[in-house]
């Protein structure tokens, strides 16, 4: 892979070192003379001195057709210009723009950059997900916010608790990817009964995540129709109806790997 690393000081050094070992073609451009010297000695690599947003520096450093272009300059707008230059004029396949001001993440994306990273933004997201631990819900967004994985601990008061998956009419816009129970992972099928203290790992789209949580958190006395008016009626007849099997295929890869070893546990219990 051809990787262009533009700007940055210690971040650049770290990235250079971690990519250098993997036999990639690295092109390093840095606007700061002192940093250029330091990187040369620290990383034993050719470093071009120049502004990574100027056409001249790109041409001199031969930064054409990069597979990944990483902009690590101090100023957000410098990174913006560098990424645009790389993308529009030098045919970079993917640009990664690091920003300082977290609100620039959304703005830069709106302006057409494909990956924008802010450490403050990530920190805030982490803090939010950690602090929502008390509600026992964790969410993880994948693939540029197009998929959300929600982790949810089931309490005994929930309506879906102590019911088999085939009987609960789980919403169509989501699927249960895995269940953690007693340190074991269960890949669910329709016969699995959801028990208190189970942790459900559910996959859905970001705009449905709120609905999904609402559905899961519905308490026993007042189960609400889900996915339309047919919900209540359907609930009564749901046991006879075909239930869309929770899609095994959609499981989060990482979890699925660990799950393989324990996949038989539920069926054994059941029989």
């Amino acid at each position: 892979m051809k990787i262009v690393i533009a700007g940055g000081d210690s971040k650049a050094e770290y990235i250079i070192k971690s990519y250098k070992s993997r036999k990639n073609q690295l092109v390093v451009i840095n606007p700061n003379k002192a940093v250029v010297e330091r990187l040369r000695t620290a990383c034993q690599i050719k470093v071009f001195h120049g502004a990574p947003w100027s056409r001249l520096a790109f041409e001199q450093a031969n930064a054409f057709d990069a597979d990944i272009f990483i902009a690590l300059c101090e100023e957000d707008t410098d990174n913006y210009a560098a990424c645009l230059m790389a993308k529009r004029m030098f045919n970079a396949k993917k640009t990664i723009c690091v920003v300082d001001n977290p609100s620039n993440v959304e703005y830069f994306k709106q302006l057409g950059l494909d990956a924008v990273i802010s450490s403050t933004y990530l920190l805030a997201q982490n803090i939010m997900s950690e602090s929502s631990m008390e509600t026992l819900t964790k969410t993880l967004s994948l693939d540029d916010n197009r998929v959300t994985v929600i982790e949810k601990v089931i309490l005994s008061k929930y309506a879906i608790c102590n019911k088999a998956i085939k009987d609960i009419r789980f919403p169509k816009y989501a699927s249960i990817a895995a269940i953690y129970r007693n340190y074991q992972i269960i890949i669910p099928n329709g016969l699995i009964v959801i028990q208190p203290k189970d942790t459900l790992l559910m996959v859905t789209t970001p705009n449905n995540s709120r609905n999904l949580l609402k559905y899961v958190e519905t308490e026993r006395a007042s189960i609400l129709p889900v996915g339309g008016l047919a919900g209540v009626k359907a609930k009564e007849t749901s046991s006879s109806e075909k239930k869309a099997a929770p899609a095994e295929e959609k499981t989060v890869e990482k979890k699925a790997e660990t799950a393989k070893t324990t996949v038989k546990t539920p069926t054994k219990k059941k029989n």
Partner: peptide, 16 residues
């Protein structure tokens, strides 16, 4: 006085 800032502002004003 900063071209990169001007570039970003121009895009932001025009597009956003």
């Amino acid at each position: 006085g900063n071209d990169n800032l001007s570039l970003f502002l121009a895009h932001a004003c025009a597009i956003i």
